[in-house]
Amino acid sequence: MSKSAPKTPPEALRKARRIVVKIGSSLVVDAATRAPAAAWLNALAEDLARLRAEGRQVIVVSSGAVALGRGRLGLTRNARLDEKQAAAAVGQSLLMQAWETAFRPAELVPAQVLLTRDDTERRRRWLNARATLEALLKLGAVPVVNENDTVATEEIRYGDNDRLAARTAQLVRADLLILLSDVDGLYTADPRRDPEAEHLPLIEALTPDILAAAGGANTQADVGTGGMATKLEAARIARSAGCATLIVSGLNAHPLQGLLDGDRATLITAPASPLQAYKSWIAGSLEPAGALAIDAGAATALAGGRSLLASGVQRIDGRFDRGDCVRVVGLDGGSLGVGLAAYAADEMDRIRGKHSGEIEGLVGYKGPGVAIHRDDLVLDPAQ
């Protein structure tokens, strides 16, 4: 971990520029009325607006659709899978209405984003989801992400949105994942059962002892059944992507402002930055599907930290799709690095040697102005 990496929860929040905030059903939905917890949502919206005013980008991952839908349809918690899917279909519109109502006074614009596991694990869909989220952030909206439970083909399990939040953080290369929970962090044991349990404010490695400290589900909350184990699994996913995680109590109003004011929480650090982790993944986990041979001028530009322009590409080898890993080589065949192609092989062949302004006319749509963006490129050590 970098020496400058945050070591306290308030410092982690102050330093983060792109933040994913996950909210569980037990916070979004009032357990007694089965209606949205309007006052709490309004307070959280004020916290989010304050972060936005400070120049931070925020993505919300919100549970609650199934719980709200069950309340509207009069279903029990032991509903069948098809009934849970029906509840999700009814509840998702209610959930977005609740966020729209909460965001309006804070002058925030919510944008519904429904994802499935394939959207974060299949390469082309991953690229499409990332592009959508990036566009929403650029336009000033606040994405409100939820799992697309209505079309889920396997059992809807608690914890999916913890993992979905981590995958979302990975997707957008977030600096910080905040998991709002019903407890104020990780303890050496379940504090509801063991009054001697000690709070752990800082975790720098997810050791077996730390993982063993995760308790079971919160059976006291009627609308949420998840536990600390799913949150540590989410933190592990986020950590591998260079994203730190905060486990924070959301039981009080203004939980994010409370963090800055020193409320108790657990910080799980990441060993690298999101960009470093992303580039390590490109370099070490992906098998190149083809190659781009570039001229000497382009090679010099890459060595200087620039993106690879189509004008520098002289030859295309192999068959690959947009977003596939390709090797970058010199005209002599010597390896220069690897990167993610911004265009498929046939499109790349059309735009090679051309200037950026010509690309749209050659491929038929407005795409990236580069062949490989510098953030998606890893040069060989000698370069």
Rank of each mutant, 00 (worst) to 15 (best):
L94W: 00
A244L: 03
T8D: 02
A234E: 03
N42D: 15
A301M: 09
P143W: 04
G353L: 01
L48W: 09
A79Q: 02
G323C: 06
S181I: 11
R315V: 09
D119M: 01
V21L: 11
D160C: 00
V183M: 11
L136I: 13
L115T: 06
L246V: 09
A16H: 08
T153Q: 10
D295K: 10
R306N: 14
S181E: 06
A238F: 08
K231L: 10
D118Y: 08
L27A: 06
D160A: 00
S249R: 13
K138P: 00
A197F: 00
A212T: 09
L180R: 08
E11V: 05
L68T: 10
R123L: 10
I372N: 01
A131L: 05
I156N: 04
Q92H: 08
S307V: 14
I268R: 09
P255V: 03
G333M: 12
Y365T: 06
G339N: 05
I268H: 13
L139E: 05
I268M: 09
Q97F: 15
A32I: 15
A79C: 08
E83H: 05
M1D: 05
L176I: 11
G305C: 08
D317L: 14
D324F: 15
S25K: 15
S307Y: 10
A213W: 10
V60C: 08
G297K: 13
L206V: 07
E46F: 15
E107N: 13
A303I: 11
P105I: 04
D346Y: 11
R130Y: 11
D376L: 07
D82P: 12
S240F: 14
S26D: 05
A342R: 04
K15V: 14
E107F: 12
S273I: 01
V21D: 11
E134A: 06
L202P: 15
L115Y: 12
D346W: 11
A303H: 13
G367C: 03
D182I: 13
I294N: 06
S311R: 15
G339A: 02
M228N: 06
K22F: 06
V183P: 14
L48H: 07
A301R: 04
G227A: 06
V61G: 02
K231M: 07
A32N: 07
L51D: 02
K279G: 01
P368A: 14
L362T: 05
L379G: 01
R163P: 03
T8P: 15
L309T: 08
R236F: 12
I282K: 10
A270C: 12
A382K: 14
A235H: 10
P208R: 07
S93Q: 07
E107W: 15
L302N: 05
A111K: 03
G262N: 04
P381A: 02
G367A: 00
